[in-house]
Simulated scan of single mutants.
Amino acid sequence: MIEYQAFRVELKDKVAHVAINRPDKVNAMNAAFWSEIVEIFRWIDETDEVRVVVLSGEGKHFSAGIDLQLLAQAATQMGADVGRNAERLRRQILTLQASFNAVDNCRKPVIAAIQGYCIGGAIDLIAACDMRYCTLDAQFSIKEIDMGMAADVGTLQRLPRIIGDGMMRELAYTGRAVDGREAQAIGLVNRTYADQPELMTAVFELASDIAAKSPVAIRGTKEMIRYMRDHRVDDGLEYIATWNAAMLQSADLKVAMAAHMSKQKPDFAD
C-alpha cells in the first residue's frame, strides 16, 4: 500500500479504510490532503477488490477543516490586478472542489465515521459521502461564515439534499455547532454511538455487510440514486430500464438466486 502524508490507507476484506492522519494538527486539510484524496479515490474506483470505503479521522477529532496556513499562503499570492487575482482564486477553488467530487463520484459506497470536531471543510467532505455515522460528542459546524466567507467546496450544494433547505440555511448563516444527537435528529447522520470504538465497530460491520453484496448491484444502485439528484422520475425510470437491460445479465443474479434457494451466503466475484 502506498504511503501518504495526510492519510493512512488500508484494505482488508474488501473494505478500504481511509483515515485522515494528521491528529497533531486536528486532521486539518493541508496541501497534501487535497491532492492525495484524489489519488486515493482514483485507486479505490479502479480497484475491483475494493467494494466499500470507510472514511475516518485519526485521534480525538475527525477534522477541523481546511488548514489555515493553506489559506494564508493563498493570500500571499495575490497581486495588484483584481482580475488576475480572481482568476487565480477561481482555479484554486475549482481544484479543491475536484477533491471532494472524487469522493462523490466514487463508484463504491463511502461511509463517514465522525468523532469530535467536524468543522468547515470537513462538512463539505462528509456531505460528499453516501452515509454518515458519529459519536454523541461529535461537533458539526459550517464555520466558514465566521471566517467572513461562504462555504465553497460542496456544503451549500450537497447538504440541502441531506438535511433540508431550511436547516441547512440556519446552520450556514449562524455557524452554530450541532452535536451528535441533534445531527441524527436533523438527518445529518444515520446513527450515533457512545464513543469512537463503538462507532468504528458498527461502521465496519455495516461496511462488511455491504461488501458481501453483489458489486454490480451496488454499483447500479449508487448510480441510480446519484442520477436522481438532477433528473425527473421518468428520466430515472428510463435510465434504470436501460441500465438493467445489461446488468440483469450478470452472473451475480444467478449466484444470488442460488444462494437464496439453498440458504447459503453468496460469494460474488469482484
Rank of each mutant, 00 (worst) to 15 (best):
46 E>T: 02
166 G>M: 03
149 M>E: 14
145 I>Y: 14
86 A>V: 15
60 K>R: 02
45 D>S: 14
38 V>I: 12
104 D>N: 07
59 G>H: 03
52 V>T: 12
155 T>A: 13
70 L>T: 06
174 T>A: 04
151 A>L: 09
169 R>F: 04
70 L>W: 05
119 I>W: 07
176 R>E: 07
171 L>M: 12
79 G>K: 08
128 A>D: 00
80 A>F: 09
99 S>K: 03
78 M>P: 01
83 G>L: 00
118 C>V: 10
80 A>R: 11
78 M>G: 03
178 V>P: 09
170 E>P: 00
88 R>L: 15
175 G>R: 02
52 V>C: 10
52 V>G: 04
60 K>L: 05
160 P>T: 11
83 G>A: 02
167 M>V: 13
64 A>L: 10
125 L>M: 08
80 A>W: 05
112 A>F: 08
177 A>V: 14
112 A>Y: 04
49 E>R: 15
85 N>Q: 15
148 G>W: 11
128 A>S: 12
133 Y>S: 13
110 V>T: 10
100 F>G: 01
87 E>T: 15
65 G>K: 01
79 G>W: 11
165 D>R: 12
123 I>F: 05
109 P>F: 00
158 R>Q: 05
97 Q>C: 12
70 L>D: 00
166 G>V: 05
52 V>S: 06
59 G>L: 04
67 D>W: 09
123 I>S: 06
116 G>K: 04
54 V>H: 10
178 V>W: 07
156 L>A: 04
99 S>N: 07
96 L>F: 15
179 D>M: 07
106 C>A: 15
69 Q>G: 13
149 M>N: 12
159 L>G: 01
41 F>N: 00
94 L>W: 09
54 V>R: 09
159 L>M: 13
58 E>T: 07
91 R>A: 14
109 P>D: 00
103 V>N: 02
82 V>D: 10
43 W>P: 01
173 Y>F: 05
117 Y>A: 11
